[in-house]
Design a binder for these strands. Sequence first.
DNA 1: GTTAGCACTCAATAAGCAAGAGTGCTAACG
DNA 2: CGTTAGCACTCTTGCTTATTGAGTGCTAAC
Lengths: 346, 346
Amino acid sequence: MNKELNERCRLILEAIIEDYIMSGEPVGSRALTRRHNIALSPATVRNVMADLEEMGFLTSPHTSAGRVPTEKGYRFYLDSLLQVKQLSLGKRQSIQEHYKHRGLRMEELLREAGRILSATSNYTGVVMVPHLTTTICRRIDFVRLSARRILVVFVSQSGIVEHKLIESDLPLTESELQEATNYLSQTFSGLSIQEIKQYIVSQMAEEKAMYDSILRRTLQLSSMALEDDLGGQVFIEGACNILDQPEFNDLNRMKRLMRTFDQKNLLVELLHKSQLTEGVQIYIGSPDHYSDIEGCSLVAASFTSRWGATGTLGIIGPTRMPYSTVIPLVDFTAGLVGSILDIDEE
Amino acid sequence: MNKELNERCRLILEAIIEDYIMSGEPVGSRALTRRHNIALSPATVRNVMADLEEMGFLTSPHTSAGRVPTEKGYRFYLDSLLQVKQLSLGKRQSIQEHYKHRGLRMEELLREAGRILSATSNYTGVVMVPHLTTTICRRIDFVRLSARRILVVFVSQSGIVEHKLIESDLPLTESELQEATNYLSQTFSGLSIQEIKQYIVSQMAEEKAMYDSILRRTLQLSSMALEDDLGGQVFIEGACNILDQPEFNDLNRMKRLMRTFDQKNLLVELLHKSQLTEGVQIYIGSPDHYSDIEGCSLVAASFTSRWGATGTLGIIGPTRMPYSTVIPLVDFTAGLVGSILDIDEE
DNA sequence: GTTAGCACTCAATAAGCAAGAGTGCTAACG
DNA sequence: CGTTAGCACTCTTGCTTATTGAGTGCTAAC
């Protein structure tokens, strides 16, 4: 069916979607012919519109309103019609400026990326620091808070720092911990967390007999330290930006979106998904698919440093978003963040 | 003038405010006499109300609506009328439950406190980790990311972990860093950051002559590490809870509040203020004072561990909030968090 | 296949109206 | 003199009713 869309249909569909993206109002046949000097009469356009509606690309809020793109309409637009512009040199430079002259901490760096996305697009920026399982370990440190409470500080190869508290069944002295720290740094530096876990399991099997050996306790400690996944945070920046969009004059939709931001799990899920794929991904909220962000879309891309996937970032805005500028913005920012992580690594 | 408020006026003012807190609607004379079996006729109540309005405790949205408390009204209510209940045993226990069986990281612990405040009150919970200048240093670690890029990991006596990136003018080897780390841990452990800074300044004066000594470079490094204040984060939990309040059917007010949450600086300011004072502080948003949170109040208290002030937490809700339960909730949670920090410390 | 014309639909806006809640004032009461 | 009943007045709220205007779908003519 889609293949049957002839040139004229495609042209009109594109015009409608772009008009709608600009105005946010249902677009009618008459207005359309005037704005995009189309050499057709409104009546003809109406016929085409009726066809497009039947095919599921358009819908009308009520009988006597114009047409609005459906999710399917947007999808087709994104896949077949949209021409992504290049990000203007000025914007690229201004974004790069943000990162100059800064000794940012990793967390701040990612937050800043979110802020840039938000400020440049006037929508909401999201950044996810991934779970660390796949990342490479640069260093593991133990800090003794009390005899049984140990703080684990984990530094990944790309400079992301995470820490967690663990509780040991046996009391540990400062020197025991020091020894464990040294052992770990030497043994595990340069491995990924998954590899470390495997190594620990095999070692512990060997050491089974030796009940109270230092090594055994060190291994136990490390095992606990790596037990739950570290990381997986999501930063949301500029959540309120999106509220200025006219579609959020609807109080309830607005509340639901805020709730989604608050809970974050949907975002984590989506960002995780796009982590697995190359390039820019677009998720369109709809009553069926991602009802929590109905009326909104997420444009996401993962950024990677030389050491493997390290995170995902994106923009959440209304579905009627100027994708032709937002997509390259997300793309560029992801690349930039990736390259900055590389610099950090040496 | 305030002193002239006789028993009857106080009683009626209290009744009005409590009614308003319950209903959110302007309260009229007739409804008042019925709900709080007051042995007065509506007409008399009206006279009293007129007096209270003239004195600035009440106002009416329009001629034929009931009365609504002003900021001054709330203040008087909070200072002179309100009787704070004790937090019910059940609630106290359920809050304590949240903290059992958990090896929480410091950050998670504070976030969780915010979540508890939010969930128990159905409003928005805020928690501020303070700047670290006053806190005691347990450990400073350097992690070498590249020759010039150093990650500083700072662990406070109470287990708060902070890290930042610094850029050194001279390349540093792994072993140099190791030496610096050892030196610092031995020299500075147990001092507050302020003390450390002072010590460094005095030492650097002495070492002025020795241009390239290890000690000098160590000191330089430490100085950079402590340069800007670390910390000062604010966690906001349950921001969307507050949106269910009827006063936020006003879209603009809602947007402004969300913007305030996004930017955080007003919150930082207020939370900082209450850090300096004992006990529970209440800030009432009004067009004059804190116009960004107009219609809202912040109920805040600082939590302290044995090692000195460590942070502030609180609840942001509509000004018409059931203070008699919110205040003890904030108070109790602040105490609990403080005591948990103590446990962490040994 | 395209277009002009026309009747029809429906949301949005405004206007008018009645109901209800609450006030302020005045005059009477104990 | 404080308190109360009565009453006219005000102002919101909800409801109904026109009116307008944008846009459609259909039909018939080009």
